[in-house]
Amino acid sequence: MARAFTPKVVTANDLLEGDVIYLTAANTWTRELHAAELITDEAEAQLRLLEAQSQPQIAVGAYLADAKPGEQGPEPTHFREEFRRTGPSNYAHGKQEAKLEATADV
């Protein structure tokens, strides 16, 4: 029997900013893993990756990253993807910084 397919998200770095982005179901890009499309079918994942790779003006180095469903949307399964969606651990820079600023606004 074939091994069960681990769900995926399509992720890349933004061409201009260099930061981490994810492909949504609406074919747009988001900076929030929770808003990404969780792909549960292997063939579909390959198609979605091709879709991402056909947008070289936005996304650099697109690849499929393992993810799992969570209450608010996809969650990482590996610590590398956890760091990518958060930022470095030595300073509150990267995505966590953007979040801090957003919370400070309300």
């Binding site: 770095n13 061409l15 201009l16 900013e17 260099g18 930061d19 981490v20 070289p56 003006q57 650099v60 180095g61 590398r80 760091f83 990518r84 930022g87 470095p88 820079h93 990267g94 995505k95």
Partner: peptide
Amino acid sequence: RRIDGALTEDEFKPLRLMNGLYLQLHAY
């Protein structure tokens, strides 16, 4: 040329690396 689409990433990557520009986890 990369930003306006005349160069693909495959073409641009060796050029940016020759000038010390990497793409890392969170940024360039």
